[in-house]
């Protein structure tokens, strides 16, 4: 691992790019094949369903990728999203201005994650232990506090996830689609796809990818994940970098929770089952190495889309959803093997 540090980003970028191309090719193949079997699969309505309903997974996977690159893991993320969504909904119903109903959960998320980060960085408790404990606390705590009551009756403007891009420019009721001007009607399908969650997903992915690649702070995450001791010798403090990693993860988790909460009319105040696994899977399939030190967030977003598309495709081609998980498992395995193969090739080339 340590040897790769020296030749950091440029090379990594190129190699992880191939993981991203692989995923892009996978997505394209899936859409072409299933689209030929049933053209409705590639209709903009279905694309919208796939993207809209899973954008929050992609956003959460960005933060998870940063955590994994730093050599840690977070299994509390699904529970935290459940808790934050309930807080967000409860605030909105209580009449708090919608902006605060969105912002407060994000702030709480950052604080909770920084608390976990402090336990990991300063008290040196392994992240898997900290987050396993937190998973328990959040999951039990949520039901204790809310009794699992469903939250409904949020004001219309709360539903950020239902906004379209055009709503920003043409004053319209959020949630009700703005009328597309005549001159742009040819582009309507494209505008339909550009809902808030999808825009969030796009911009956050690109922003995070840029941050990780081009800023000193972003690159320090790779350094700490690759070899904390070497990083320290280079003047990159492990502790402060990890605090930053968890704060960034908190930010993305918070945003994901807001997207998650503002989509449905009713918020189920329980922890979404297996969500952490889906998010970790997206990161890992996206090419983030669990050993730390490599991977990008563009891959994780593509992987989130691919996994969601596979779930939808299985219904379109009439395959029992029971095989979905087996397919996911094989997908991760294949991706990881491809990654290991590439690393070996690289090792030989050197």
């Amino acid at each position: 691992m340590s040897a790769t540090i020296a030749q950091a980003p440029a090379r990594k970028w190129r190699f992880s790019l191939s993981q991203e191309w692989l995923l892009l090719i996978g997505i394209a193949t899936l859409f072409i094949v299933v689209g030929l079997i049933n053209p409705r699969f590639v209709a903009s309505r279905n694309l919208q369903s796939i993207l809209l309903a899973n954008a929050y997974v992609a956003v959460a996977a960005i933060g998870m990728s940063v955590v994994i690159v730093s050599g840690n893991i977070d299994i509390s993320v699904g529970s935290l999203i459940g808790v934050l969504a309930s807080i967000s909904g409860a605030l909105a119903v209580a009449g708090v201005p919608v902006f605060f109903a969105w912002a407060i959960p994000v702030v709480i998320s950052i604080l909770v994650m920084m608390l976990q980060g402090a336990l990991v960085a300063y008290l040196r408790i392994p992240s898997i232990v900290v987050t396993l404990g937190m998973l328990s606390i959040l999951k039990g705590g949520l039901i204790s506090v809310t009794n699992g009551v469903w939250i409904s009756g949020m004001p219309d403007s709360f539903h950020l996830a239902q906004w379209h891009l055009l709503d920003l420019f043409i004053a319209a009721e959020p949630g009700k689609q703005a009328a597309v001007p005549e001159s742009l009607s040819a582009l309507k399908p494209m505008f339909d796809l550009l809902t808030m969650p999808v825009l969030f997903m796009l911009f956050l992915t690109l922003g995070a990818a840029w941050w990780m690649r081009n800023t000193a702070k972003g690159r320090s995450v790779y350094a700490v994940g690759g070899n904390a001791e070497a990083a320290r010798l280079c003047g990159i403090p492990r502790e402060r970098t990890l605090m930053m990693v968890f704060a960034v993860h908190g930010l993305f988790t918070g945003l994901a929770a807001v997207l998650f909460a503002t989509q449905p009319s009713v918020i189920q105040s329980t922890v979404p089952p297996n969500l952490e696994l889906t998010i970790i899977t997206a990161s890992v399939v996206g090419g983030v190495s669990i050993l730390g030190g490599t991977g990008t967030v563009i891959g994780s977003t593509l992987a989130a889309i691919l996994i969601a598309a596979i779930g939808s495709a299985l219904i379109f081609v009439n395959i029992s959803p029971y095989w979905l998980r087996a397919a996911q498992g094989i997908l991760i395995l294949v991706t990881v093997l491809a990654d290991i193969y590439r690393r070996r090739q690289r090792g030989l080339a050197r």
Binding site: T281, Y322, G329, L333
Partner: peptide, 18 residues
């Protein structure tokens, strides 16, 4: 194949259940 244990067993977690 030197697959990290966490990854290997996450993928078989999905695969075996599937």
């Amino acid at each position: 194949l030197k697959v990290p244990p966490l990854i290997m067993t996450i993928s078989t977690l999905a695969l075996y259940r599937g």
